[in-house]
Nucleic acid binder design. Structure first.
Lengths: 227, 227
DNA sequence: AGAATAGTGTCTCTCAGACAGTATCTT
DNA sequence: AAGATACTGTCTGAGAGACACTATTCT
C-alpha cells in the first residue's frame, strides 16, 4: 500500500552581521495572500535523486547567486498546516556569510533584501523573531519563518562558545574588534574586551597577519585570519 | 508542474543506560537482504495529515508499546541511496527512557532487543557506532543506522553539561551514584564524585526525598527525585 | 569489629570578569 | 601635542579536580 506523500523542501536562512546587528536575507513573495506574508527565506523542493544538502546548495546558487558558504542543518519543520496550499515538510538550514557578500546580491536582485533580526527574549530562551527593514519597517514573514528565524538565533547563541561559527560571518581578514562585534550581535549583549581577546586567542583558531587595517580614524588594529 | 516526491519517515532511537552502559532498542528486520542489515531502530512513514512528532509518538506506541517519554528531533537524513528500495528521507528522533521500562518491552516482544552501543572515538569527535548484543555479539544494522546511532551519542555528549537530559534516563527515584553512572556511560569516561555531586546539586534540578534505597549490601544512599 | 560505600571539607589550579594602565596611530 | 583607540598586566572571585576525611549501614 502506498500513502499520499508530503512534499519535502529545503528552506535556507542566510545570516550575516551588518553594522553590529544580526541580519537575514529575505525574498519577496508574489503570492503573499496564500502563504501568509510578503517575505520569506529562500527555499526549494528536494528533487527525487538529490541529497538534502545538495538542494540547499542549489537554492543558494539559483535563487541567491552564491556558493562556498558555511551551511548547517537546523531543524525539520512539519506542522500539517504550516503551508496553507499543501503539506510541505521543510528541512531548514542556515548559512553564515560575510556582510559584503550579501550586500552584493541584494544590490543585483530587487526581490532580495537584508533585514535586521530582532528577538525580545534573552539568552537561549527561544521564541519568534521579527525582521526589520531600514526603509519598510517590520516585514510580515510567510509560513512559520518568524519562528524559524527565532530558532536560528537560539542555535547560534548556543554554538558560539564551543565552536568557531562566528568566524564564518567575517571576511578573510578581520580585526579582533570585528569578531567581538559579531559575538555581541548574536548574543545581544556587551562583552568585556580583555577577557574576549584572551578566550579567542587561546582557542588557536585565528592567527595574526602582521597587516593592519587602513582608513581608520585612529590607531589601526591588526588584521587576523582563520587558521 | 509536480515533481515525484520522496517518502518521509520518522526513525526513533530509544536510548537507555543499563548496567552502566549505553543501550539502544533494536527491531529485527525480516527483509535484511534488501535493506542491508538484520536490525534497525524502529520507524514509520509520516502520514499526510500528521505532525512529525505525532509520527514519532505513534511509532513509539504501535511498534514499541510505550508512551510519555522524552523525545527530541536529532537530524534529517536524506542521502538518495540510504534506503535501497526507494527514496526515503528520515526525520530521526531519539527518546530517553529508564532501563526498567525497556526491559519490559523486550521481554514481551521477540523482535525487540536491547543492544549496547559502543563508539571508538572520544568526546564529541563523531563517527559510527556499533551495537552489541549480550548473546548474539555485534549486530549488523540496516540503512545508515550505525551512523545515526553515532550521531545520537555525539548529541547526548554535547547536551550533558548544559541540560538535564540525563535525568530522563533514570527512574522516578534515584541515587546520586546512579546519576553519575549515567553521565559516565554517555561520556565514556570516569568522573570524580565530589565535583560531580556539587555540580548536580547546584543546578537545583533534583531534590532529596529523605527516603533511602533498600537491599544494598552496605550503607544505603539517599533517593532523589526531579524537581 | 570490619568492610564497603555514602557523603563532606579543604586545598589548589584554572579561568573569566573588571579595571587600570601602556602603546601607537591620526589629525 | 592631543585625542582616540589598540592592546596588555594584574587583581579577584567562581568553579572544577584531587585528596583525604567522616558517617552510616550490613555482615
Amino acid at each position: 500500500m502506498t500513502y499520499p506523500k508530503p512534499a519535502v523542501a529545503v528552506d535556507l536562512a542566510l545570516i550575516t552581521v551588518f553594522e553590529g546587528k544580526l541580519h537575514c536575507l529575505l525574498m519577496r513573495r508574489h503570492d503573499a495572500e496564500t502563504v501568509g506574508g510578503d517575505w520569506a527565506i529562500p527555499g526549494g523542493y528536494v528533487h527525487i535523486e538529490e541529497a538534502i544538502e545538495a538542494t540547499a546548495r542549489r537554492v543558494l546558487r539559483d535563487k541567491v547567486g552564491m556558493s562556498d558558504v558555511y551551511l548547517e542543518q537546523l531543524f525539520t519543520y512539519g506542522a500539517p498546516a504550516r503551508d496553507p496550499r499543501e503539506r510541505v515538510i521543510s528541512v531548514t538550514h542556515f548559512a553564515l556569510v560575510a556582510a559584503d557578500q550579501l550586500d552584493q546580491v541584494t544590490a543585483e536582485n530587487e526581490d532580495l533584501v537584508l533585514a535586521e533580526i530582532r528577538t525580545d527574549w534573552d539568552g537561549e530562551t527561544g521564541g519568534i523573531a521579527s525582521a526589520i527593514h531600514p526603509d519598510a519597517g517590520t516585514l510580515t514573514l510567510a509560513f512559520d519563518h518568524a519562528f524559524i528565524l527565532g530558532d536560528v538565533v537560539k542555535r547560534l547563541r548556543g554554538k558560539l562558545d564551543y565552536t568557531n561559527v562566528a568566524l564564518e560571518l567575517l571576511p578573510a581578514l578581520f580585526t579582533l574588534r570585528q569578531v567581538q562585534e559579531v559575538y555581541e550581535a548574536i548574543l545581544g549583549k556587551q562583552l568585556t574586551k580583555p577577557a574576549f581577546r584572551r578566550k579567542l586567542l587561546d582557542r588557536k583558531s585565528i592567527k595574526p597577519t602582521g597587516k593592519h587595517e587602513t582608513g581608520s580614524a585612529f590607531r589601526p588594529a591588526e588584521l587576523y585570519t582563520r587558521i
